[in-house]
Design a protein around this nucleic acid. Structure first.
Lengths: 149, 149
DNA sequence: TCAATGTATTTGTATATGCAATATAATCGT
DNA sequence: ACGATTATATTGCATATACAAATACATTGA
């Protein structure tokens, strides 16, 4: 019985995933808040930025960069295609799925969003502190592009 | 133009939310992996643990603890009610929604899960390092129970 | 060439999440 | 006691996420 209380207390107080998920929700709220006037969610901004920076890029490679399942990308990117922020480009090399690149409209949107993103970034930095920000960048930086799972 | 590239590069390389979300996906994958034999997801474990530790507790108070929207809790907890891991308790004080508590079955499940949770916890600790784990606990620890948003 | 294998995408299904609006219950002011 | 306000929960809607299975294209080996 004391054993029972023990493990549950451990899971309640020390679970790294629980903390990561709280952090994720709080931060997502901050960025979504600042992005609301622009009609896109934080997740979509992250995707748009990647496509703008390293595109043309296939879905599978976005997934490897950001640890996202291909099926998730099919659906998330569909909204962005419909909104005209990104487009498929014909490369004539592989018929299994065309690479994606940012559109002029998408690039304009990114530039308009710049200050709002900065505001969210500053709010987050104030919340988690400089050491928190540094470590978060380092931690996930090690994961980006690494093996899935 | 150089200005354009500048802000996009910043958003790609320094976005704290982007990193938090990658971290969240990777860690969720680790815990889900270890929990798969038990038929519940990591999110459900986090909820079950909270209910077991501080229940009976109302949905609204779970939300305040974990920064979760009430509507999210309505739906996530419904699955757990159906599975018999938690139950509503009549307290006769407030008709707007009964507090939730863990069932004997839910408590058994938690105890069975203990070693798997520990394995996921260890895998995570190895991945993010001791300083990463410490900071993650501290960071989100400051958020738990704090104001929403 | 063509069958076998491998890779990229999509679809089906289930859970996770938040906002806006609604419903319902409690409380407060008079 | 009653109307107004507040608090809690739910529903409708949209997006986010992953696994399993199906699909489509590519590559390889005989």
């Amino acid at each position: 019985m004391t054993q029972d209380k023990g493990i549950i207390d451990h899971m309640a107080c020390e679970c790294l995933l629980g903390r990561a998920r709280v952090l994720n929700r709080v931060l997502t709220g901050i960025y979504d808040d600042e992005l609301r006037p622009f009609g896109l969610k934080a997740t979509q901004l992250n995707l748009l930025v990647v496509v703008a920076k390293v595109g043309p890029i296939r879905r599978i490679d976005i997934g490897k960069l950001l640890h996202l399942d291909p099926s998730t990308l099919t659906r998330n990117l569909k909204v962005m295609l419909i909104n005209g922020w990104i487009q498929e480009v014909a490369d004539g090399e592989d018929g299994r799925g065309l690479p994606l690149q940012v559109t002029a409209q998408g690039r304009d949107l990114l530039n308009q969003i710049g200050p709002a993103w900065r505001k969210a970034q500053d709010r987050t930095q104030n919340l988690i502190g400089e050491d928190g920000a540094t470590l978060l960048l380092k931690l996930a930086g090690n994961m980006i592009g690494g093996p899935r799972g």
